[in-house]
Simulated scan of single mutants.
Amino acid sequence: MSNTLLQILVLAAIAVFLILRLRNVLGTREGFEPPRQQAPGPRPALRAVPTEPESDILDHVQPGTPEAEALTAMQRIEPDFAVGPFLTGAKQAYEMILTGFERGEIDEIRPFLAPPVAEAFDAVIADRSARGITTEMQYLGTREIAVQAASLDPATGLASISVRFVGELIAAHRDAAGEVVEGDPKAARKQRDLWTFERRMGQDDPNWQLVATA
C-alpha cells in the first residue's frame, strides 16, 4: 500500500470520527425547527381597578336636562341612590295609596303622605262618608311610569321628584241608595296622575313622602 493511499484512509477515518462526535453533541434537525422559547414565568396578579358605581340616570331622563343634573346631584350625596329602584318604590306607593284613598282607608298609608296631602285625602273621604257614598274598586295595574321632573335644593338637601303614572282600575261610587254616581263597576278605565315625592338626601330615613298630586 502506498503512502498516499494510507494517508487518504487515515484522513477519511478522522473525518468519520469527527462527524459522529458532532452528531452526538449537537444532535440533528430535519426540516424547519422553530427556535425554542423559554417557558413563561408566573404572571403578575391582576388587581381590580376601583370604578365608580354605574349610574342608571340616563336610562330614565335625557342627558344635559335639569332632571339629569338634579338626579346626579342626589347621587353625589347618596352614592347608592338609583332611579330604577326609586321608581319601583314609587310604583308600589302609587298602587297602595291610590287603593287606600279610593276605599277610604288611609291610616296605613298616612306615614307616606305629607300633612297637606293627608288633610286633602281626609276631606274627600269625610265628604263621601257624609253623603253615604261607598266605593267599589279593583286595581288592575300600573301601565306606565316615568320621571317627569326632578330638583334638589343644595342648601337643605331637599330632593323632589315628580313621577307620571298611568294606572288601570275598575272603580265605582254608589250613593246611599246603591245607585252608581261615578265610575263604572264593569268597565276598566285609565287613570293618569302626576305625583311629586320629596325627601332630604343624606338622612337615615329612606322613605319618600307624597307632597303633591295632579
Rank of each mutant, 00 (worst) to 15 (best):
L152R: 01
I145M: 05
P115S: 07
R164Q: 14
A68R: 01
L140I: 03
D122Q: 12
P206S: 12
T134S: 13
L169I: 05
A13G: 12
L26E: 10
T51H: 13
R174K: 14
I170T: 12
E136V: 06
Q138S: 10
L158N: 13
S162M: 11
I145Q: 03
T99K: 06
G31M: 03
Y94Q: 10
G104Y: 05
I8N: 09
L98M: 15
R36T: 14
F81A: 02
R47L: 03
S55K: 04
D175C: 09
V180D: 05
L210T: 00
P53I: 02
G31I: 01
L26Q: 11
A15E: 00
V163M: 04
I19Q: 04
E69Y: 04
R47W: 07
R103Q: 15
A159V: 10
F81I: 07
E95D: 10
V16M: 11
I19P: 03
A146S: 07
Q7E: 11
Q203R: 13
M74Y: 12
T134Y: 01
V166E: 08
D153N: 15
R189Q: 14
L140R: 04
G89S: 14
E182S: 14
G132A: 01
M1I: 14
V163L: 08
P111Q: 04
T135D: 03
A15Q: 00
I133W: 06
P63W: 01
D59N: 11
T51E: 15
F165V: 02
R131W: 00
P35Y: 15
A177N: 12
F101C: 02
A120E: 14
E67Q: 15
Q37F: 12
A13S: 08
T213L: 13
